[in-house]
């Protein structure tokens, strides 16, 4: 009887060991090739398909002479009595475009005298007050929850900082100088030997 019992135990042990080895090999194969078997929790990141609505269409005549791409790091903190402070740090991107609005040109802003042309352009300035591309804003660090007012304040602060950093006298002068060069080159292609460009 004893030998039979021991044989029975041995065969059971062998069966179990074989099953374990097969399972281990199967799991290893699944890990290497996830097409055999895999389970994962998936987040759908894509937005829904929604229509875009055109709010306005405008014909404009703005001549850009200088563009300044800028990034600003804006940080805001909410202090707490207990626990760590809440903090939101965002990086805003914007492009400030300096040039002239041709719709502001006065009557007779182009005067031709033989092969000389005189061009009187309006002052060089910021072509649009909206220059931040908020879609390219990067959330650098966030803790706590932040309402719309906080984000609007951060946006306005970013705009103020960009204006302060980019609308410098040297940049405006550089835009003016480039405007003279570009206009001179343009009117020379039309055959004028002397081009005088003035800004109001």
């Amino acid at each position: 009887m004893q030998p039979d019992k021991s044989n029975h135990l041995l065969s059971n042990a062998l069966l179990i060991a074989t099953a374990v080895v097969i399972c281990a090999l199967f799991v290893r194969k699944c890990h290497e090739d996830r097409e055999i078997f895999d389970v994962e929790v998936v987040d759908e990141k894509a937005i829904d398909i929604t229509p875009a609505q055109i709010r306005s269409i405008e014909r404009i005549g703005e001549w850009e002479f200088l563009s300044i791409a800028d990034e600003e790091l804006i940080d805001t903190i909410r202090h707490r009595t207990l626990g760590r402070d809440d903090r939101l740090v965002r990086i805003y991107r914007g492009t400030l475009r300096l040039g002239v609005d041709l719709s502001k040109c006065e009557e007779g802003w182009v005067q031709v005298h033989g092969d000389t042309i005189e061009v009187a352009l309006p002052p060089v300035g910021l072509l649009s007050e909206r220059f931040i591309d908020e879609a390219r804003t990067r959330a650098f660090f966030e803790s706590g929850t932040w309402d719309a007012r906080a984000k609007e304040q951060m946006y306005r602060k970013a705009a103020r900082q960009m204006r302060r950093r980019c609308l410098t006298p040297s940049n405006i002068e550089q835009a003016r100088e480039n405007g003279r060069e570009q206009m001179t080159a343009l009117f020379r292609t039309f055959g004028f030997s002397t081009v005088e460009v003035k800004f109001k």
């Binding site: 306005s56 269409i57 404009i60 001549w63 903190i77 990086i91 072509l127």
Partner: peptide, 27 residues
């Protein structure tokens, strides 16, 4: 407590000659 960070991350200046002729505002 808004912290002003004066580090210049990116400031790219480019001389251009672009005539903008149409503006669309999309919502």
């Amino acid at each position: 407590t808004v912290v002003e960070d004066s580090v210049d991350l990116v400031l790219a200046v480019a001389r251009t000659s672009r005539l903008y002729t149409a503006e669309y505002r999309v919502h």
